[in-house]
Amino acid sequence: MKTHIDPELLEKAGSIFAELGLPVELAINVFLAKAIQTQGFPFPVALDGDSNRNGLVGQTVTNAEITEIIQHFVEQVLPVSEIDNLTQLEYCRNTFGLSFPVLKTTKSVHSEDVRIAVKDAKGRNRYSTSKVAQRDGVSYVICTQWTDRHRPAFLRWQKSYGDC
């Protein structure tokens, strides 16, 4: 495979990565690995800075809306196998680029059980304390750690199960 890298871009990026103590080749490999992992660009791609991300024209979604959608999907739309997938860190990394599972089980919807479940290993809240999804006698807290770079992947995933 023949490649052409713009020499001016390579020089500018090379000096930035040199300051970070990284060879530019490593940075390129990281980019390529992330592209493979996300099955596309590892960041949102848009025209003219609008919300036309990955062909989802005019669609933006807030964290609160994501939480509502996930709650609805867990309770009424998703097959049990997909709910199980959403509790798996590796699946959520590959599907959304998240650092946390989308769902985490909690003993119950009681406030004390939820307060315990929403925290990560360092004691930081990573899940909603106000929205708890329930399905087949199991309660799930919902991840709140969505950023702009996760939204296109979420919208693609949502579309694969139908809009709510």
Rank of each mutant, 00 (worst) to 15 (best):
S160M: 09
A117W: 02
F17L: 11
F96S: 03
D120F: 03
I16T: 05
H110R: 12
A33R: 06
V24S: 14
Y161E: 05
G40L: 06
V57G: 09
I116S: 06
T95I: 03
P23R: 11
L26K: 11
V102P: 00
M1P: 01
N54C: 07
L26M: 12
L78C: 14
R115P: 00
K159A: 06
P23N: 12
V141D: 01
T105C: 07
E82F: 09
C92T: 09
T144E: 10
T147E: 06
L86V: 10
V61H: 02
Y127V: 03
I5V: 07
T67Q: 06
G21V: 00
D84I: 13
V102Q: 08
L22A: 05
D148N: 14
D136Q: 15
P152Q: 03
D148R: 15
E112L: 13
G40M: 10
R126D: 00
I70V: 15
A64E: 11
Q158C: 13
R156C: 12
I66A: 02
R93G: 04
A153V: 00
T144K: 13
V141W: 02
T129C: 04
F154M: 04
N85L: 05
V141T: 06
H150Q: 13
G97E: 01
C143Q: 01
V138Y: 10
I28Q: 04
E11R: 08
V61L: 15
E112I: 12
K122H: 11
Q39P: 00
H72W: 11
G49A: 12
E90Q: 14
S139P: 00
Q88C: 14
L47H: 14
A153E: 03
F96G: 02
H110I: 00
L10A: 15
D6I: 06
R124C: 04
T144F: 07
R126M: 13
Q76R: 13
V77S: 09
H72D: 04
R151K: 15
V57N: 11
Y127K: 09
T60D: 13
K107T: 10
V74R: 00
I116V: 11
V61C: 14
E11T: 07
K159Q: 10
N85A: 13
S108W: 08
V141G: 00
I36V: 13
L9W: 05
T3G: 01
L155T: 04
R156F: 08
E90G: 07
S139Q: 03
V57E: 13
Q39M: 07
T95S: 10
L20K: 13
T105G: 06
W157F: 15
E75H: 10
K122M: 01
C143V: 08
A117F: 07
L78Y: 13
D48K: 15
D84N: 14
S139A: 11
Q76V: 03
P44G: 08
P23S: 10
E25M: 10
R53P: 00
F43H: 04
L26G: 02
R53F: 01
R156N: 11
R93P: 01
F17N: 02
D113H: 12
V132I: 14
F43G: 00
R135G: 02
S108K: 12
V132Q: 02
I69Y: 04
R124T: 08
R151T: 06
L47C: 08
P44L: 12
V30Y: 07
D50I: 12
V141C: 03
P7W: 13
R124D: 07
G21S: 09
D113S: 10
E90C: 11
Q134H: 14
I83K: 15
Y91F: 15
I28L: 08
